[in-house]
Amino acid sequence: MKAVAFAAVTSLVLLFVWERVDIVRIGYHIERLKTQKVLLERERDELRVKLSGLTAPERIARLASDKLGMMQPEKGQVVVINIEPETPVNPVVAEGEMRIAKNIVTRRAR
């Protein structure tokens, strides 16, 4: 009877000690993860700043003209128009037809 009681008390003590040790171990693990999170956030911010700089309109315009030879459209080359369809556009293409850009031609005709 005494031996059982002794074993039970010892187990409880060991359980308590194991729990404390594990808490400390997990604590260190959490701290490592926190540090890692901070480093990743720092990297994310650095990439965001870089991305923002790389997508600056001034840079895009310079690359477009210098590297790709693009230029501003001349007067009247761009015309923005408002198209308000009188009837709702049916997105379903009827059988036997295919849609090429804005023109619809029948398959048989081709």
Binding site: Q72, E74, K75, G76, Q77, V78, V79, V80, I81, N82
Partner: peptide, 21 residues
């Protein structure tokens, strides 16, 4: 004005002479 109206997609409000490339 010309560039910003194009960028904002503001539709023309009077006939325009086309100059298609």
């Amino acid at each position: 004005g010309e560039q910003v109206l194009n960028y904002l997609g503001v539709a023309v409000d009077e006939p325009v002479k086309l100059a298609m490339a």
